[in-house]
């Protein structure tokens, strides 16, 4: 029988301090049952108080007995990580099923993983799978000068000589430049980390002639905020206009106006809230839609994406 697609109730079995600011959570099914396997790069959407945050699964995806996530405490964040850092062993977390938008490309001749800070987390499952299937992989990992390296022992064990840890922005920039100039044909690039690092890596890749199809990026934790300039949605079927304030998402504005719409991660990663047949100037912020779908300007993820002026919806 196929597993149902419902949510998972996971009990916190163990909490480990990965570094002073990164806490690792080992989760097991609260009902003692099994857990689904997951693909490399998968994340778990976790209900953190009134927020839902996406965290990469850091273990091996094959027939796992438990799931593990690593959470960086962000004192200036929106409260999700602080809430999780207050969680104690034994507590039960509501989680979605693993989802993947950052999988390795099976045909790649080589995988070049570029990470910064907590952005290393999705690559742990990549490395576990690479070892199992004999995939060639190398890692460039930027860590702040003097900062501890999260998951250092595991990374060394999995990536061996393929791992390079770079301290400071200049060293990382030079290493990325060199790596992106010298990769074998057929290498795929995967980047995850702070926006600045990701933008640099992708700009370097483009500068060295990498086609977009071989560059894969995951903005960790999904999109941080749904805020932006205010705009108006027009519901075509009823003729209603709803104002979306600067600090509200389109999804929130619809809910406040009594329009129910299915949603899950609320971070632009899961694709659950997709809306079709929209018209207007859409500002896409999700991580789900393909370039062609974005360009068509007729569908969007209302949990994070916005519009300029008036957005017309088939509602």
């Amino acid at each position: 029988m196929s597993a149902p697609a419902g949510d998972l109730a996971l009990r916190v079995e163990r909490i480990v301090d990965v570094t002073p600011s990164v806490r690792g959570f080992v989760l097991r099914p609260a009902d003692g049952g099994g857990l689904p396997s997951y693909a490399p790069g998968s994340h778990l959407v976790v209900a953190c108080g009134d927020r839902r945050n996406a965290y990469s699964l850091t273990g091996e995806g094959h027939a796992p007995d438990s799931y593990a996530i690593s959470v960086l405490h962000r004192p200036d964040g929106q409260g999700g990580s602080a809430w999780l850092h207050g969680v104690r062993p034994g507590q039960v977390l509501r989680c979605g099923r693993p989802r993947d938008a950052f999988a390795p490309v099976a045909t790649a001749r080589h995988h070049l993983l570029i990470a910064g800070g907590i952005g290393i987390t999705p690559f742990l499952s990549h490395l576990w799978a690479a070892r199992r299937w004999g995939r060639r992989v190398s890692v460039l990992y930027a860590v702040g000068a003097g900062a501890p390296v999260p998951h250092h022992a595991e990374l060394t064990a999995l990536a061996g000589d393929g791992l390079r840890i770079l301290r400071g922005r200049a060293a990382m920039q030079a290493a990325m430049d060199q790596a992106l100039r010298t990769q074998a044909l057929g290498t795929h690039l995967y980047v995850c980390g702070p926006d600045g690092l990701m933008d640099s890596a992708l700009a370097l890749a483009r500068g060295h002639g990498w086609p977009d199809e071989r560059c894969h990026a995951e903005r960790f934790g999904g999109v941080d905020a749904a805020e932006g300039a205010p705009f108006t949605v027009r519901l075509r079927r009823t003729g209603r206009d709803i104002a979306v304030a600067a600090d509200a998402s389109l999804l929130d504005a619809l809910a406040a106006a009594g329009v129910e719409w299915p949603a899950m991660c609320r971070r632009g990663v899961c694709g659950e809230c997709r809306m079709d047949n929209a018209a207007g100037t859409i500002l896409h912020r999700d991580l789900v839609l393909s370039p062609a779908e974005r360009a068509a300007q007729s569908c969007l993820m209302p949990c994070v994406s916005r519009a300029e002026g008036v957005l017309s919806l088939d509602l």
């Binding site: 196929s2 597993a3 689904p36 997951y38 998968s42 099923r97 899961c270 789900v288």
Partner: peptide
């Protein structure tokens, strides 16, 4: 094809 590309793990 779009539908299948978005099909989540474990769903049939």
């Amino acid at each position: 094809e779009r539908f299948l590309i978005r099909l989540p793990a474990g769903q049939a």
